[in-house]
């Protein structure tokens, strides 16, 4: 399959990339890892007239803790997250998630920024970022601005990244105290989108009380979803079995899955409940370690 013709530029600075985006108008697209965009172009679901390849811009790929945040450069590849020491030590949720994203070859290309900027509720990082309470840095002609993850996803394939802007950094409040996180998605086979996926983060004080909780859901609603009622029941609780069951039930009730080849609505709600419960238990064990 061959994409429609387009012009290609590979700028070497962010300023140059933003200038090109403005020059070419809204028919231009940014090429990051390309493993969502190029297949869509081959199928002619997308036919941008200009591709602006940002892979040659230095300084957009890193994973580091700084100023109370875990900072991930937008062009950091899935494989670089998988192999990052700080991720291994403190943010195992990314190990859970990246292992289930596509396959090793795709993870050699796919970027975290691209996974978010694609604006697809079937992608895995949106739910992870919701659970972790991330914020996203977007760079444009006027400079940088920051958008909270809850205001980032606007619709199917649309996000807070406006035309002429580039997503440049993802910031996650750094893990502190008894902090645990976990992600799992049910998938039919390697490389499939989630039938349902759940990302969980909990923070627990020394008395065993939950002080902070985040739950994000993958592919069970038109937009990546925060399970707000589940979080509310967890915060301030002792995370007893009954509380976890209640949180899982709320998540199953509050999502809005649609029937497809992966299952019907009832099955997907059931999965959300089960995975929420399992990931909460996993995150709690990790928090208490």
């Amino acid at each position: 399959m061959i994409a429609e013709n387009f012009n290609y530029d590979a700028p070497t600075s962010l300023e140059e990339a933003i200038a090109l985006l403005h020059q070419y108008g809204d028919e231009a697209k940014i090429l990051a890892g390309g493993h969502s965009l190029i297949p869509m172009m081959k199928l002619r679901f997308a036919s941008p007239t200009h591709l602006i390849d940002i892979n040659n811009i230095p300084g957009l790929s890193y994973v580091k803790e700084e100023d109370g945040y875990l900072k991930i450069g937008a062009m950091t590849k899935e494989v670089e997250v998988e192999e990052s020491e700080i991720i291994h030590a403190k943010y195992p949720i990314f190990m859970d998630a990246t292992k289930l994203i596509a396959d090793p070859q795709v993870r050699n290309f796919g970027t975290l920024g691209g996974n978010l900027a694609h604006g697809d509720a079937a992608n895995d990082h949106p739910a992870v970022m919701i659970a972790l309470g991330a914020e996203v840095e977007i760079t444009g002609k006027e400079g940088k601005r920051t958008v909270g993850i809850d205001d980032f996803f606007h619709g199917f394939y649309t996000t807070a990244v406006e035309h002429g802007e580039v997503l440049t950094e993802i910031r996650i409040p750094a893990a502190s105290g008894n902090y645990g996180s976990a992600y799992h998605k049910a998938e039919r086979k390697v490389g499939d989108y989630a039938t349902a996926g759940v990302a969980v983060m909990v923070q627990i004080d020394d008395q065993g009380r939950c002080t902070k909780a985040g739950i994000g859901l993958t592919n069970v609603s038109p937009l990546p979803l925060r399970a707000t009622r589940s979080e509310e029941v967890l915060v301030g609780s002792d995370l007893s079995e009954a509380v976890i069951a209640q949180a899982a039930q709320y998540a199953a009730e509050d999502c809005s899955p649609t029937e497809d080849l992966r299952g019907n609505e009832e099955y997907k709600r059931h999965l959300v409940g089960i995975i929420t419960k399992r990931m909460l238990n996993k995150a709690i064990v990790r928090a208490k370690k």
């Binding site: 590979a10 493993h35 081959k42 390849d53 494989v79 795709v106 050699n108 290309f109 490389g191």
Partner: peptide
Amino acid sequence: DTSSCGACTILIDGKSAKSCTVLAVQ
């Protein structure tokens, strides 16, 4: 031809890649 099967896998700078999902210009 949809980056699922891996038959087109090559190495680019030592990293395995599905060459049906990479542009030659890249």
